[in-house]
Design a protein around this nucleic acid. Structure first.
Length: 219
DNA sequence: CTCTGATCATTT
DNA sequence: AAATGATCAGAG
């Protein structure tokens, strides 16, 4: 992908078509449901749009500085149905500031692709919505930084046991793993004790993405 | 209905 | 083991 305009044009071309139509054009067979492959739609869009970030801790379109996020919405209310994963929350990595953080990198320039999604709508019949590019405004950025500071301090000061999803106004930290029994990561607590705990990730709260989307749809 | 904790697949 | 792509499902 050479330019942002080219990327947005590609998005416009698939706005309104169904998941099945896009999958067919890419010769991909959709799973029966997302139950056993929750990130499948995101990967479908990555492939179509030519995202190249892979699973490195960088944005999806490195040369454009754009992060791709599909977001499930209720087609009637146009409101998001889920929170949005941003990136892994790093354990025991003191000294990283907001400006250098992966969170800031990822949320600075996001290409949101709404996907029609309600429980009773088959995966293949869900339609792809009109994508739009978003950057946080000054006020949003202030809160996001505050949230990041608060959450990161709890992580770095060894207080992960106290850290739950209730902290943060726009951001939150929640488990991010295949399950909470295997795939445990090492964490050093404030006592200097090494424990195994479930990996965590930063997420946008649904209430925040609601305001992002409603601002866009009003414009 | 909203929110939090739990979970699934894949790649490097 | 840790990063990516997220949604599920029960609790409140």
């Amino acid at each position: 992908m050479k330019t942002t305009k080219e990327l947005l044009n590609l998005c416009d071309q698939i706005a309104g078509i169904t998941i099945l139509e896009l999958a067919n054009s890419l010769k991909i067979t959709p799973p029966r449901s997302l139950n056993n492959n929750k990130g499948w739609i995101g990967q479908l869009l990555e492939q179509h749009l030519g995202a190249s970030g892979g699973n490195l801790p960088i944005v999806d379109f490195p040369n454009l500085g754009i992060e791709l996020k599909t977001i499930p919405i209720n087609p009637r209310t146009l409101q998001p149905l889920e929170s949005t994963f941003i990136c892994t929350a790093p354990f025991n990595q003191p000294g990283i500031g907001w400006e250098q953080s992966i969170v800031k990198l990822k949320l600075s320039n996001v290409l949101w692709v709404p996907i029609e999604s309600v429980n009773n709508l088959d995966l293949i019949n869900r339609r792809i919505g009109k994508a739009f590019l978003w950057q946080p405004n000054h006020d949003q950025l202030t809160i996001l930084q505050q949230d990041w500071q608060e959450l990161t301090e709890m992580l770095q000061f060894g207080n992960i046991q106290l850290l739950s999803a209730k902290y943060g106004q726009y951001l939150q930290i929640r488990p991010k793993a295949a399950n909470c029994k295997d795939n445990l990561a090492n964490y050093i607590t404030s006592n200097g004790e090494s424990i195994k705990t479930v990996p965590r990730g930063f997420y946008f709260r649904t209430s925040f993405t609601k305001s992002i989307l409603s601002n866009f749809f009003i414009c």
